[in-house]
């Protein structure tokens, strides 16, 4: 559909994917403040448990179960 060309310094997501956990590091030299780091989670990792995934797919094609509806 579309190939968007970027370089790392023009895209926060590209630089976050590299600069915080890759490259050369000496642990004793690290002086990073992670305060506010969650603000950078523009592409937050999403993990969904299997059963929830199945229910989500069934619902997405118009199927639901009474048992799948949480009690009020």
């Amino acid at each position: 559909m579309a190939v968007e060309k970027v370089n790392s310094s023009s895209s926060l997501a590209e630089v976050v994917d590299r600069i915080l956990d890759k490259g050369i590091v000496i642990d004793a030299w690290v002086r990073v403040s992670l305060v506010g780091i969650e603000l950078l989670s523009v592409e937050a990792r999403v993990v969904i448990a299997s059963v929830e995934t199945y229910l989500k797919y069934a619902e997405a094609v118009g199927l639901t179960s009474q048992a799948a509806v949480p009690a009020a």
Binding site: M1, E4, V6, S8, S11, R18, K22
Partner: peptide, 23 residues
Amino acid sequence: DQQFSDRLKIRYNNFTAPYNFAQ
């Protein structure tokens, strides 16, 4: 990308310091 007609969106990074290979 064209093999998949209009199904995908691709971000192609063609200029970066080589973080993935400098470890």
